[in-house]
């Protein structure tokens, strides 16, 4: 019988090792990227890398500013589109929808989460870009063009707006499912107490559910944000990829992820180029890690407290 307990102990060790090493993968990735990014980080001051707009790898100039801004523009606009729609949908599903509606809508949203990013990208190319090129940009340009944010000088349709719309769709399922879970974790007692005082349903939601669920909602948004931040293919396909600093939502942009995807693995002969791209990867990773750790810790606290 010793062999059985020995097997058990061996298995325990082995499983521990697998778990332990898997939980180190994140650090390993960060470390590897850092090791490869070091040449550029030692060769150039960080300030120059981040704030210089001159991107001429052949001349040894690596200013990430346009790309960082490209990422921020696309992500921020995607969140502006996505947050209100997702949160309202999540509230609807958690507080208003009947079990039957929820039973239909939730699987559909899960489906949305499963669609590959190239398919979203293709949709963007086929539907969103022409729509912006033919209708939205000319119309907005004519009516609101005096505001720089809406001036439509780029006539291709491949733009910040196109990238944001595609990203917004990809972020919907994340925010909706996390936020819905958070809303539903608010104890019924609180709801009833508030309804019993004569509140309408929306007042109850506004004053009780949202307030109680706020940290979780923030976490849901942060998770969605970090997903949008790191998304590559879909954005790459519709955003235009011109290394400029966008000033209008109809301008093209060139996010960091697209920069890596388009150039990495090629032109390895240019000194520091590969290091610079991995530096961009490291930057992406660190940003996303910060967001994720924050969101997960909040979520853990929120969901555990209520369950």
């Amino acid at each position: 019988m010793l062999t059985r307990s020995l097997k058990d102990r061996l298995a325990s060790r082995l499983m521990f090792l697998v778990t332990f090493s898997s939980s180190l993968i994140v650090f390993l990735i960060a470390l590897a990227l850092y090791a490869r990014a070091r040449p550029i980080l030692t060769a150039k001051p960080l300030g120059e890398l981040i704030f210089s707009s001159s991107w001429h790898p052949l001349k040894g100039e690596f200013g990430f500013y346009p790309f960082i801004l490209g990422t921020l523009w696309v992500t921020a606009l995607a969140m502006i589109i996505s947050i209100p729609l997702s949160l309202l949908t999540a509230i609807y599903l958690a507080e208003y929808a009947s079990a039957r509606v929820r039973g239909v809508v939730k699987p559909l949203i899960d489906l949305l989460a499963g669609i590959p990013s190239v398919v979203y990208g293709l949709w963007g190319v086929l539907a969103v870009v022409p729509l912006i090129r033919d209708y939205v940009a000319p119309l907005m340009g004519r009516s609101l063009g005096f505001i720089p944010l809406f001036s439509a000088e780029n006539l291709t349709g491949y733009s910040v707006l196109a990238g944001s719309i595609v990203l917004a769709l990809m972020v919907f399922p994340i925010i909706i499912s996390v936020a819905e879970e958070v809303f539903r974790s608010v104890p019924d007692g609180l709801r009833e107490a508030s309804l019993a005082l004569g509140a309408t349903r929306w007042q109850m939601v506004k004053h009780v559910v949202i307030r109680k669920a706020l940290p979780g909602v923030v976490a849901a948004i942060v998770l969605g944000f970090s997903r949008a931040f790191g998304e590559t293919m879909a954005v790459l396909m519709v955003v235009g990829n011109v290394a400029m600093i966008p000033s209008s939502i109809f301008d093209p942009a060139y996010p960091l992820t697209a920069l890596i995807a388009n150039n990495y693995g090629e032109m390895m002969s240019i000194p520091l180029y590969d290091s610079a791209l991995l530096g961009a990867g490291l930057f992406l990773l660190l940003m996303v890690l910060c967001f994720n750790i924050m969101a997960r810790i909040i979520l853990r606290r929120v969901l555990r407290e209520e369950w």
């Binding site: 180190l24 990227l33 790191g230 992820t257 992406l284 890690l289 997960r296 810790i297």
Partner: peptide
């Protein structure tokens, strides 16, 4: 936590 965080790592990374 570490696996959850790994979940969020962009696939390009």
């Amino acid at each position: 936590l570490s696996l959850d965080v790994l979940w969020g790592v962009p696939s390009i990374v």
